[in-house]
């Protein structure tokens, strides 16, 4: 190279730029720090927990002054990938046991995961229920446009279980990769019905109505949470897990439509 100095300067510039992108306050989480110093707790939670965990985080912060919770919501599988690639999570709350097991297999779970909630499926229909869906059997009717989750994701696995238990074979017009996508197709009126979690149907507001069905009890989804190995803030992580399992945490989850573990 003709100008080694310039090349080095460029390289240094690049490294500095990347360093500047690193999350601020990272140092703070690792220091024990004096009382009153701000400490950050990063919670990775399944997308379906968004409403409940946002409220929980607020209550936890109020009860523990000086602790600030950063929430990150995504599909459980996405979160596992992110954590195993080094994303700085202190607590992981999964929408199913399978994804928690995936993280545990990589040695990234600190202690035993604890079940903190359950969720069942409900039929979501557009406001006014234009197709007149009243039961799970109605979904198999000719001409009814049903949208479900693909069997690769937790809500889809639950759908498959119910289909097997009841012997009713659905012919969905679409198999989406997340509950949110199913809900989107229902709330926009494109689909006549969709299978989503009770909690999702509840949080969707006035554009979506919920049709409960007894067969849903055959596929109950259990949510586990655990502290992540190497968590920068282990005491706070344990405290948060205990808070979710405690009376106050359970009340918030129940209000959002989750079942007791």
């Amino acid at each position: 190279m003709k100008h080694p100095l310039a090349a080095w300067a460029a390289a240094v510039l690049m490294v500095l730029t990347l360093a500047a992108c690193a999350p601020a306050g990272q140092g703070g989480t690792n220091d024990d720090g004096a009382a009153g110093q701000r400490r950050t707790l990063t919670v990775f939670a399944a997308a379906s927990l968004k409403g409940a965990f946002t409220e929980l985080a607020g209550k936890f912060e109020a009860a523990n002054p000086g602790t600030q919770i950063t929430l990150s919501f995504a599909g459980s599988a996405d979160l596992v990938t992110q954590i195993s690639q080094g994303a700085p999570a202190d607590v992981f709350a999964s929408a199913d046991a399978r994804n928690m097991a995936k993280l545990a297999d990589q040695g990234l779970v600190d202690g035993e995961p604890r079940d903190f909630a359950t969720n069942t499926l409900a039929i979501a229909v557009p406001a006014g229920n234009p197709a007149g869906i009243k039961s799970f059997g109605d979904l198999a009717r000719q001409g009814v446009k049903v949208v479900v989750c693909a069997s690769q994701v937790p809500c889809g696995a639950a759908t498959t279980t119910i289909e097997q238990e009841t012997g009713a074979a659905l012919k969905p017009v679409s198999e989406e990769s997340s509950v949110t996508d199913v809900l989107g197709k229902v709330s926009s009126g494109e689909a006549d019905a969709g299978l989503v979690y009770v909690t999702d149907a509840r949080s969707a507001g006035a554009t979506v109505e919920q049709v409960p069905f007894p067969e849903a009890a055959k596929a109950v989804n259990t949510y586990p949470l655990a502290a992540v190995k190497g968590a920068g803030n282990k005491p706070a992580a344990d405290a948060f897990v205990a808070f979710v399992l405690g009376a106050e945490g359970q009340a918030v989850l129940a209000a959002a439509g989750f079942g007791a573990p």
Partner: peptide, 19 residues
């Protein structure tokens, strides 16, 4: 939407398989 052979193109299939 996303249904095999009808609307699930290769990028959608990749997104789903990743799960």
């Amino acid at each position: 939407g996303s249904l095999q052979g009808v609307t699930r193109t290769l990028p959608l299939e990749i997104y789903l398989q990743r799960e």
